[in-house]
Measured scan of single mutants.
Amino acid sequence: VKVFRALYTFEPRTPDELYFEEGDIIYITDMSDTNWWKGTSKGRTGLIPSNYVAEQ
């Protein structure tokens, strides 16, 4: 598990995607895809765009 911080707010387009706000901490559990990672924030899990976060 790696810890990342959201650089921007992300509004999901599908139920599989995770909503998060700029500054949120996201725990990444799967980075197997280059563009979409699986992450958890505020008790919810979903896909996030990798270019919206920076490693802490």
Rank of each mutant, 00 (worst) to 15 (best):
S41R: 15
T45F: 14
G23A: 03
Y27I: 12
R44M: 13
L47M: 12
Q56G: 13
G46P: 01
S41C: 15
A6G: 05
D33W: 04
Y8L: 10
D16M: 11
E55K: 10
S41E: 02
I26F: 03
E22C: 07
P12W: 05
E21K: 10
Y19V: 04
P49C: 08
T40K: 09
L18P: 00
F4P: 00
I25E: 08
S32F: 08
I26M: 04
F20D: 00
R44Y: 07
R44E: 06
Q56M: 15
P12Y: 05
F4D: 00
K2M: 10
F20C: 04
V53H: 02
D30Q: 06
R44S: 07
E17N: 03
T45V: 11
S32V: 10
G39H: 01
T14R: 13
E17F: 11
G23V: 02
L18T: 00
V1K: 10
Q56T: 15
T34W: 09
I25P: 04
T29N: 08
S32T: 14
K42D: 13
T29D: 07
M31D: 09
Y27S: 06
Y8K: 14
N35H: 15
S41G: 04
E22Y: 09
N51T: 12
N35I: 14
N51Q: 12
K2D: 03
S50Q: 06
F4W: 09
N51Y: 09
I26C: 02
T9A: 09
M31Y: 07
I48W: 03
E17M: 11
P49G: 04
T40V: 13
K2A: 11
N35R: 13
E11N: 15
M31G: 03
G39I: 03
Y19C: 10
D16V: 08
F4H: 05
S50A: 14
E22H: 06
S50W: 06
E22P: 06
A6I: 03
E55F: 13
E55I: 12
Y27R: 05
R5T: 11
E17G: 12
A54I: 15
P15Y: 07
Q56F: 15
P15V: 13
F10M: 05
A54F: 13
I26Q: 00
I26Y: 01
T9G: 08
R5F: 14
M31C: 13
Y19T: 05
P12H: 03
F20T: 01
P12K: 03
S32Q: 10
T45P: 07
T14Q: 11
T14C: 13
S32I: 10
I28D: 00
L18N: 01
L47R: 08
R13G: 09
F20V: 09
V53K: 01
W36T: 05
P49V: 02
N51D: 13
F20Q: 00
L18K: 01
V3Q: 08
N35M: 14
I48N: 00
T34P: 15
K2E: 05
V53R: 00
I28M: 08
E21N: 08
P12Q: 03
K42S: 12
D24S: 05
V3K: 10
G23F: 04
W37V: 02
K42F: 08
I28P: 00
V53E: 02
L7I: 12
I28K: 00
L7W: 04
E11G: 04
F10L: 05
L47W: 14
M31T: 09
Y8N: 08
N51R: 12
R13C: 11
E55R: 09
S41K: 05
